[in-house]
């Protein structure tokens, strides 16, 4: 790794100040949160931002809060490790914690933030599919005020999102969900850890009260399209049905059809597509069984 080129850095202490700064300096700036993407881009990949705005002095952007109305808000500067170990999330959405636990190493997760990860818009981001499957919304602030965008609509392509240059992602909100909601995230990669997802699959559905039918089905795929995508045909095929192994297989095949993978040095498109099918099936069946109790169990269920 080399030293970065000289660059300007600002450390605003309020959203207002930050927004004003962005307006004044114009395009070409970068936000610094955990730095796990930005610093590497600057030191390894030759990125030279016009200026850098450190967001870590802005108040109120960290932490996981359970609201009275059942919504859960996650501050943009909340680290992956905080999500992974959050008692609230572990209880309600263990698969979300699991998806955070899949990111890099503990050292990386202690630095990497959910806001940074979303804003960076990597197609293989591990927490994105789980959050989209939970119908999470993003709150985006600027001097003009706040707006809300569904996370599903937030990504525009690799490295691209809906925010304009004077906007800052402040929080991610998970709406109130049914107590019968279940889910699973499977990251498929050759190594157990320290790897990028070749395929990521998040499934979330609510089990019917009497018949165990699958309702409000969400199947979200990572790393197989320019952004995380929903496999809507697959969702429709499962909606209102009782899950069986045969049905899970069929739904998986539909999801595989909907994926738009590319071939690269890691894997061929055909293999990624096949893995979408296999892992969707597995995720649907695992979700029905309930959360894995240990890392070993999780590993054994994944493969």
């Amino acid at each position: 790794m080399k030293r970065t080129e000289p660059f300007e850095m600002y450390q605003p202490t309020s959203l207002k100040e930050a927004s004003r700064l962005l307006k004044e300096k114009g395009p070409g700036g970068r936000f610094l949160a955990g730095g796990t993407d930005l610093v590497i881009a600057m030191k390894e990949k030759g990125l030279v931002p016009k200026y850098v705005v450190d967001l870590k002095r802005l108040p109120g952007l960290t932490g996981i809060h359970e609201n009275k109305d059942g919504r859960i808000t996650i501050g943009a500067l909340t680290t992956m490790r905080e999500i992974e170990t959050s008692p609230v999330l572990t209880k309600k959405y263990p698969f979300l914690c699991q998806s955070a636990a899949e990111v890099g190493s503990i050292q990386i997760r202690n630095r990497a933030t959910v806001g940074g990860n979303m804003s960076n818009a990597t197609p293989s981001a591990d927490v994105a599919p789980s959050l989209i499957a939970l119908q999470a919304k993003t709150t985006i602030a600027s001097a003009a005020g706040e707006r809300t965008v569904a996370l599903e609509e937030f990504f525009r392509g690799p490295g691209q999102n809906v925010m304009s240059t004077d906007e800052i992602l402040t929080e991610v909100t998970i709406p109130k969900t049914s107590s019968r909601l279940v889910g699973e995230y499977i990251k498929f990669s050759p190594r157990e850890m320290m790897d990028l997802a070749y395929v990521g699959v998040a499934v979330v559905y609510t089990l019917g009260e009497k018949e165990k039918t699958c309702e409000a089905v969400h199947i979200v795929l990572g790393a197989v399209a320019p952004t995380p995508i929903r496999a809507k045909k697959a969702e429709d095929a499962l909606e209102g049905q009782i899950l069986s192994e045969a049905l899970a297989e069929k739904v998986g095949a539909l999801a595989a059809e909907e994926a738009k993978p590319i071939s690269d040095v890691r894997s061929s498109a055909e293999y990624r597509r096949a893995m979408v099918g296999a892992m969707t099936k597995r995720a649907l069946l695992n979700a029905a069984v309930g959360p894995a109790k240990s890392w070993v169990e999780r590993r054994d269920r994944r493969y």
């Binding site: 050759p190 190594r191 157990e192 850890m193 320290m194 790897d195 040095v265 890691r266």
Partner: peptide, 9 residues
């Protein structure tokens, strides 16, 4: 993208 094994593997 060059995968060595980790302790978990």
């Amino acid at each position: 993208d060059y995968h060595l094994v980790t302790s978990l593997d």
